[in-house]
């Protein structure tokens, strides 16, 4: 009996029609496509995008050249050279991040004792020739200067969870 029932079910294409009813319904469902340049999905304050170097409010750069980020970087994307500045402080003479190597894990930001290197919300950036995505210290500082307000706000939102 069960077999006969099964036979008719297959023969009359019942399951196929059910499937078509489902896709037919979805044809009129609300579409979930986000039309990117015009619409954007919401971002969290922990978003890990383009890197930036921050400064203190008095304009002094935060980075002290401890090389913790260089050490922790799993992709070996960071290169740092350090020297003593005239005023006797330890500063970086070179701080490069190769964004083509970077995997955006956020370990550099996590390891930084002075919150100097951070990852911002910026994810729409590009390079037009080889080397464009090799970010040097002045470039990273420029990104930080430009977006300091947003960066500080995001760190403040995250602070209570740390």
């Amino acid at each position: 009996m069960e077999k006969i029932k099964e036979f008719f079910k297959t023969f009359l294409l019942v399951e196929l029609l059910k499937g078509m009813a489902l896709t037919g319904r979805y044809m009129f469902a609300r579409k979930i496509t986000v039309q990117f340049p015009e619409e954007k999905t919401p971002q969290g304050f922990r978003f890990r995008g383009l890197h930036a170097q921050r400064r203190y409010a008095n304009g002094e750069e935060r980075c002290i050249g401890c090389k913790l980020c260089e050490a922790v970087c799993p992709a070996l994307a960071i290169k740092i050279e350090v020297a003593e500045r005239e005023d006797g402080t330890r500063r970086t003479t070179q701080y490069d991040i190769d964004l083509t190597k970077c995997i955006f894990c956020g370990f550099c930001e996590e390891s930084c004792p002075v919150d100097a290197i951070v990852e911002t919300r910026i994810f729409e950036y590009h390079g037009e020739k080889r080397g464009d995505l090799y970010y040097t210290k002045p470039m990273l500082l420029a990104v930080g200067d430009k977006h300091e307000a947003q960066i500080a706000k995001d760190r403040a939102s995250d602070a209570k969870y740390r």
């Binding site: 896709t23 037919g24 979805y26 044809m27 009129f28 469902a29 609300r30 579409k31 979930i32 496509t33 039309q35």
Partner: peptide, 8 residues
Amino acid sequence: IGWMQIRI
């Protein structure tokens, strides 16, 4: 096919 896959 897009509509049926909730795309546009």
